[in-house]
Design a protein around this nucleic acid. Structure first.
Lengths: 332, 332
DNA sequence: CGTGATTGTGGGAGCGCTTCCACCAGAATG
DNA sequence: CATTCTGGTGGAAGCGCTCCCACAATCACG
């Protein structure tokens, strides 16, 4: 590996000048700059990132933190999509994305050590569990960071991009009410996640406004199998259900399987709505009426929020909330 | 940020002893080790990775390289699954995974600069396009690396884990032959990917052995919409088809949609088999007879192959090929 | 009690880079 | 002609760490 010294020697300049020429090039004569460029080319020189980072105190890499048990992480297209978009947005600025999947509790200490250790300049965190205190920890560290989805705890101390899950859930539940459903149940997301909690709240608000009973509730886990099982329980407890708002399309796909097995026609016997619209909703039979979760916007915005902090443009926490959008198909 | 110097001073030892105590601890007295540990704890010391890396010439991080146009990357569950498994396997060894998604051609130069630049100790590459010369480049660099899936070019120069796509495709095509299909078409993967090419070859071999015509071929792109479109073309050209081997379940799901629209019953009019069995195959109607692509095994093995090189255990390229496994469902 | 091994320790060099600072030529100003 | 600026340059310090090496202390053994 060639070093800056060799480049400088070959170009006939000092190491200081060579360094200046390579970074930005202000205060360097055209002649010197050209000689350095030439030397870099012939030597195939690449600056040693460790040495550079040691003095600049920047690493030009950013962590993408996913505090989930990793079995769940990629079953949901949510994470993959977020990861892809964040990666693209950041690599446009020559930042590398370091992937950190940490089981909560278990590996939290190790995760924090990593975040604190100067490996990375900032972090994008996809986290909204009640139990994890990542937002507080990150705020304590003073680490530039942006959250995708409102963190359950410490939300006011960090920047985040979110969508209005409450409004989205209320709106899609209203679709059920408008088509005449009178006994409307829900399969929720995990109760310890902000998206889960907000969506039940939206469901409940719609029912309350229509003076309908809001007691047919079963908690799911955002997986397809979980939706299938939850729907069975729900059907057992409330056989008279004629409408079902499921907190994610993946769970809704599972619920549809249960309904079919139970001989309930969708939407005639039971109308079903989902949430997310990440592709799976159009492939179910029947295709799901759902709410578009603008995760593309959220992920991009989170990247922007992080970049603003890295640039030092701003240091006060900002929140950006995107509106969800109703998507009508045939399941309700 | 506390430095090693401060730790050493607080522990009442030299910087050298403190360093030894922190790494491994051989040739350090119990008393000194304890004093250092105590100082580390109270100071909240974390070694500066840049400084350490500068002298050890290791970074303890590994690149996961995905040379695909990123729109395609996460539509297929293949990448997400691979990524998850590799990440888990490597983080068990305290290696961080840096995600590199590079559009081929376009950003190849930048990718190679990154790989060469000392940012990472090794790479896991998911690549098997004819056009990319990553295997050769990586071999030229002498960078420890392992490929998931046989690279199209330079395969003999690098370690890789693969599955026998030829055998798998032949076997699943035989299912069609055995059930009495006599006019068997295929929707292939991209012709410039080794998995795509191997699977058509397997299909062809099965038909040749049974003395059946092997001319009903349309190229697909491993996406659901692509499968749908390819199936339309195929049906137009060869309306007499009674069997269809599709090179991926995702494409097969699209093909099933086309068949349904065309009024062909599956499997009675046209029997269909897919490839991959990554979850989607059980959700189609009817569920797909397919071949299990052992990507979990492949990803884990690739991680192992890389670790072996990082440990210096071995330097000669090794290949590991996993057997595919037939999964019978109702589509054929 | 001398010799040689063994264990623990600290001094110091040096990894490759950026950046501060002193310097110098030459242009612009009084 | 003396003076202030400039733009351009190189010397040298120092980022925080590991590890080589010299050295001291302890031990085993004849």
């Amino acid at each position: 590996m060639p070093t800056l010294d060799e480049v400088a020697r070959m170009a006939g300049v000092s190491r200081a000048t060579a360094s200046r020429a390579i970074n930005g090039g202000s205060r360097v004569s055209a002649k010197a700059a050209e000689a350095v460029a030439e030397a870099v080319r012939t030597l195939g020189y690449t600056p040693n990132p460790a040495a550079r980072s040691l003095v600049t105190r920047r690493t030009d890499s950013v962590a993408m933190v996913i505090p989930e048990a990793d079995e769940r992480v990629f079953a949901d297209p949510f994470f993959a999509r977020t990861l892809r978009i964040v990666t693209r947005a950041l690599s446009a600025r020559d930042l590398q994305v370091v992937l950190l999947i940490a089981r909560p509790g278990d590996e939290e200490e190790r995760l924090l050590r990593y975040l604190r250790g100067g490996h990375i300049d900032g972090a994008i965190v996809v986290s909204s569990h009640r139990s994890d205190l990542l937002a507080d920890h990150v705020a304590d560290l003073g680490l530039p960071a942006a959250f995708v989805g409102r963190p359950w705890t410490g939300a006011h101390r960090v920047s985040y991009a979110d969508t209005d899950n409450f409004a989205g859930a209320r709106e899609v539940t209203q679709v059920l009410i408008d088509r005449g459903c009178r006994r409307i149940g829900t399969i929720t997301g995990p109760a310890d996640m902000s998206a889960g909690a907000d969506r039940v709240a939206g469901w409940r608000a719609a029912l309350d406004a229509a003076s309908l009973a809001a007691d047919a509730v079963v908690e799911g886990d955002f997986t397809e199998d979980g939706g299938e099982a939850a729907c069975e329980i729900l059907l057992g407890r409330h056989p008279d259900i004629d409408g079902l708002m499921v907190a994610s399309d993946l769970m809704a796909a599972g619920a549809l399987r249960t309904l079919e097995r139970a001989g309930r026609r969708v939407p005639d016997d039971v109308a079903v709505v989902g949430y997310d619209d990440l592709g799976i909703a159009e492939r179910t039979t029947p295709p799901l009426t759902t709410v578009k979760n603008p995760i593309g916007d959220m992920a991009e915005e989170a990247a922007r929020l992080l970049l603003a902090q890295l640039d030092g443009t701003t240091t006060i926490p900002r929140r950006v909330v995107f509106a969800p959008e109703l998507v009508r198909r045939t399941s309700a």
